[in-house]
Structure formats: structure tokens, C-alpha cells
Design a protein around this nucleic acid. Sequence first.
DNA 1: CTATAATTCCGAACAGTGTTCGGTTTTGGA
DNA 2: TCCAAAACCGAACACTGTTCGGAATTATAG
Lengths: 204, 204
Amino acid sequence: MKKQSPRTRRHIRTRQAILDAALSIVHEDGPDGLSMRTLADRIDYSPAGLYEYFGSKEEIIAEVCDEGHRRLAAYMLEVESSLSSTDYLYGIGLAYIRFALENPDHFLLMFSSPQMAGDAPEDALPQDSESSYGILLHGIERGIDAGAFHVRPGFGLSEMGYAAWTLVHGMAMLRVTALRDVPLDLDAADHQALLNFMRGLQAA
Amino acid sequence: MKKQSPRTRRHIRTRQAILDAALSIVHEDGPDGLSMRTLADRIDYSPAGLYEYFGSKEEIIAEVCDEGHRRLAAYMLEVESSLSSTDYLYGIGLAYIRFALENPDHFLLMFSSPQMAGDAPEDALPQDSESSYGILLHGIERGIDAGAFHVRPGFGLSEMGYAAWTLVHGMAMLRVTALRDVPLDLDAADHQALLNFMRGLQAA
DNA sequence: CTATAATTCCGAACAGTGTTCGGTTTTGGA
DNA sequence: TCCAAAACCGAACACTGTTCGGAATTATAG
């Protein structure tokens, strides 16, 4: 399992250049600005040449989405783990929303299409500690272990994680779609919604 | 303000036929199946003829989205208003999700694009009792008036409405995108998430 | 009833899209 | 050195939304 030949090395390099250019275009001009021709132009290739590296445009977009999920997870990993369990979970939620607000087109691309999203749902949601959902689950687990969150029949870690995910996802999604340009203090509203969520977790 | 001439009557009739056909195509083949040519074919028109009734494809889609919001509101209006305030609000949330699950493509079309959605956000969200959000607000107001939901500083009707909307929207959105085809009992998870939300509202 | 004007409708075309194919050049290994 | 594989591109195909010119239809005014 050594290094590859210079050819395959260039291959993966230009492959990455394609993905980088695709991501740039999405961030600059939105998903509609991403065409095989503009993409090829940016890296001085012919449109046909791209098909030497990807089977279709959808494949490229799928990889852009994967990168998005990695970055989303990175946002969530930035939260200080020294915080109290409630503050920590609160920070996780804010990080999710912040990623959406700072990368609206990327976020929309990741979660607007029925497929996308690297979900390998065998019989459960991805619990690996490097995926965004896994990090979220970890935050809740901390609260449970600390006795801050109250587990009850039918409402354990999984259900709490689902509830938290849907809440922050709904806030993020609405703020980049229907509530874009609404002149209200949605940060404050998010704050209150998260507090209310945790009140439910803490209730005896 | 009498009836119109037979010409304008035909005009609005074919106009409606276009919208009906567009909605059918979205439901049958998804948004990608909706092209000006397939749309024109279905009502025995030429593609160019459509531009006598709509300025662009986007205009047509915008009206399809408007119709979607009306139908979403209709789902929520079906909830028995004789229920207790908590059961009523619970039903409202389920109706929102049910609409998304039964009309995934239509729902995605309504909430995937940054613009869309008939949001006239002057300085607040639409509170009219015929919009989906207005109905949701009404459900929460009932709980407040009945003393079931506890108002606190910074967390009044508006904030509760926002929190409820984002929660059900997140559940609906994820279930038609990332969580599509996940073999889990998400209905049960939705149930628990809604219960947890209300626990927060009820907490003293 | 007859001109005239407005509306309705379509064929054809334009610029753009993703993708495929054939052929040419470049490269790596035997 | 020779050959095969990989890389790359020009041209084309089928599709998209949209525009334009003209023809057919319909309503209105004289």
C-alpha cells in the first residue's frame, strides 16, 4: 500500500481541482451557476475532459455534498467541550445553524435533494463520532450521563437526538429559504427555541 | 365588478389548466419532469403559447407553490378544533408532516428555493388565520389562553410559534430528504419530539 | 356589416444545458 | 522501442427556457 505512480497522483490532483472549483462556483454563484462548461473553463479543461474524472455532474455534486457534511461536522467540533452539558449541546445547535447561514447555497444543496447526504441507514442513523449527527448524539449523551437530561420510556438517546436534529435543521432550513430577509431577530428566537427544547429534556 | 367577457373567461380557464397540468406533472414525475414542452404537450399547446399566460417558467412554479401553501393550510384546518389545546397543537404538527409525506415533491418545491413561499414579511410573519403559520399560531394561542402553555419573558406567542414551526418543518424536511427510506419508526420519533416540545411549553 | 385593433397561437430559431463519440496527443511500462 | 492505456478535446446530439415573426382568431368601433 505505497504511494501511487505520478500519473494517478496527477489524476487525484486534478480530480480534487475539479471539486474545489465546483465548490467555489457554488459558493460564488449558487448551484445554478455550476455548469460543466463553466466548471471546465475555470480549470482550463474541456467539458468532455471532466468525464475522465467523474461519470456525471451528479457525481460531482454528490462529492461536493460530502465535503459539505465534513465541514458541517467541523463547525460542530469547534464547540468547546469543556462547557457544561447544556451549554455544550446549545453550542452544537448554534454551530449547525451557523454553518447554514454562512454557507446557504452549500447547505441547501446538501439537504434539498431527496438523495444526497451520505446516509448509510442500515438500521440506524450514523453514529460515528465524526459525522454531524454523531457529534450531536454525543452532546446529548453527555447531558444524559450528567443527569441533566431525563430519559423516559420511549424517549431515549436516539429519540432525543432525532428531536434535536429536526429542531436545528428546521431553524437552519427556514432561515435560508422562507425566512431569508425577514427583518426579525431570529437569533433570539433560535435561542428561545433551543432553551425550550432543553426544558423538555430536563423536565421530570 | 361583474363577470368578465367570454375571452377573459377563457383566458383564466386555460391559465388554470396550465397550473393544474403543472401540478400534476410535479406530483407524477417530480419537479425535474416539468418542462415547458411537456407542460404544453399535456394541454395541447405549443411551448410558445404558454408565454401568453405566464411570463416565465418561474412564474408558473411560484403559483404552484402558492397552491401548495393553500393545501398545506387545508391539511391543518382539518384538525378537530374540539380537541384539547395540547392534542390540537399536536394534530396541527402531524398535519404539517403528513402533507410533506404525502406530497414530497410539492413540499420540496415549496421550501427548497430561497425565494418562493408567499412570505410578505413586513415586520412580522403572516398571522392571517388562513395561512399555515397563522393556524399554527392559533393552536398555540389556545394553549396559552387555556393556561396549558407557560409564557415567560422573551418567550411569548411569537417565539413559541417559531419554535413549533421550525420543529415540525425540520421533521417534515428531513423525512422527505435525508431520512427518506430510513427503516425506522419515525412516526414514533416525531411523536416523542412533539411531546418533548410541549413539555417545554408546559414547564413552570 | 365592415374595417381595425387586440388577442391567441404556433413554427422556427437562439443560446444554453449535460453527455457521448471519434480521434489525437500524451504518458507508462514491457 | 513499441504498445496499450490514459488524457484530452472538437463536434455533435438531444434537451432546456425563451424570443420573434407571422398567421389565425376574436372583439370592438364606425
